[in-house]
Amino acid sequence: MFNLSLKALLSAVLVLAFSIGSSLAMAQVQKFNLSNGTINAEITPDIGGRLLSFSLKDQPNFLLVGDLAALDTRAQPSPTSPHISYMGHEVWLGPQSEWWVHQNLNAERAAKKAVWPPDPYLAIARNTVLEQSAEKVLLKSAESSISGVQLVKAYAFIPDRKNSLKLQVRATNIRKEDIAWDLWFNTRVASNTNVYVPVANAADIRQQLMTSDAVDPLTYSLNDGIFALDFLPPTQGKAMRKGKLMIQPSQGWIASFSGKQLFIIQFPLQPQSAIHPEQGQVELYNEYNPENLQAGIMELEVHAPYKKLAPKEFMIAEETWTLVEYKGAATRNAQLEFLRAHAAELGLR
């Protein structure tokens, strides 16, 4: 009897050890830290080669990241892979309506013209590390049998701009026939982050409604050429506000405030004709519930021009990220005053 109990105990210990080991394996995402004494960035070659953290020194992460300890960070991509909410910053392709129509590996998603999940070979697969130093990380994605592209991503400090990080992506057509896509930067931040976008006219904003019995649409203001979300609580009986805004900006930047940090994303401004008609050069996706902010999300999205690529041809898109210390009030007036006062030095034209 004693021996049987000991065997049972040893078996339980082994099961527990295996369980703990599996959990640790999930959490052990390889990370590269970039730091220049002013800003810090954390990049992983795993889970699509995404950016996990961006902050001023001694300030919290500005990005919203999934619970990597609870998620499968060693998931292998396949044509049937589900979406996994790693969040942070990643790169997609646009338009979203064509994500699954140019492949024959998942007939069901092709027939439905599925708009979810994103390409698992770009979102989940481990990237190859081409270069890694204290100033730069260069990653190469898997070749995607879904989208027909391979991505190379560069994250690097800008020598004469101590507060800034350059993000550059190259997409190459790996197929034997032409393909057409845009490059789509997607950056997740907290759901109540104050976001401002320069917009010339109300007609340059359109909303993709996602209303239901439990969801209200987003609300926003446009004053003196600056767009801002209003963050009104949902009406009685509704659980949240939710939607996506497609924006044609008048200048190439997005500014967002959280705590003591101002985060600016700059990008080459494109004419509306260069952007796929189903998308906007700037897109903001927001799920907002003031009673449960942690359950929501804000996505700061930027689309590069939609282009046709011949076999082996490539296209490049880039963003410049900048962080600035902000000591003012958490009000729209104070934040806009700060932006206008520092527009020249921040390159907001």
Rank of each mutant, 00 (worst) to 15 (best):
S145R: 06
S145A: 14
I146R: 03
S147E: 11
Q150A: 11
Q150N: 11
L151K: 00
L151C: 05
K153Q: 12
K153L: 06
Y155D: 02
A156L: 09
A156D: 12
F157L: 13
I158S: 10
P159D: 15
D160C: 08
K162E: 15
K166I: 07
V169M: 11
R170A: 13
A171K: 03
I174G: 10
I174M: 14
K176T: 14
K176H: 14
K176R: 11
E177Y: 10
D178A: 13
I179Q: 05
W181F: 14
D182P: 03
L183V: 12
T187H: 09
R188Y: 14
S191R: 01
S191T: 14
N192H: 13
T193A: 14
V197F: 10
P198W: 04
P198A: 09
P198T: 08
V199S: 03
A200P: 08
D204Y: 06
D204N: 11
I205G: 07
R206L: 08
Q207S: 12
Q208I: 12
L209M: 11
M210Y: 08
S212K: 00
V215H: 00
P217A: 08
P217C: 05
L218R: 01
T219L: 09
Y220A: 07
D224L: 07
G225K: 02
F227Y: 15
F227H: 06
A228I: 04
D230C: 05
F231K: 00
L232H: 04
L232S: 04
P233T: 00
G237C: 05
G237Y: 02
K238C: 06
A239E: 03
M240E: 03
M240A: 05
R241V: 01
R241L: 01
K242T: 00
K244Q: 14
L245C: 06
L245T: 01
I247A: 08
Q248A: 10
P249D: 13
S250H: 08
S250L: 04
S250F: 10
Q251V: 04
W253L: 05
W253M: 02
W253V: 01
I254N: 06
A255F: 09
S256A: 15
F257P: 02
S258M: 01
G259P: 04
K260N: 15
L262W: 02
F263Q: 05
F263P: 04
I264M: 04
Q266G: 08
F267C: 04
F267K: 00
Q270T: 02
P271Y: 10
P271G: 12
Q272G: 12
S273W: 04
S273F: 10
A274S: 11
A274N: 03
I275Q: 03
H276G: 03
E278T: 05
Q279I: 01
G280E: 07
E283M: 09
E283Q: 13
E283G: 03
E283V: 00
Y285C: 07
Y285P: 06
N286A: 10
N286E: 13
E287K: 06
N289I: 00
N289G: 06
P290T: 07
E291A: 08
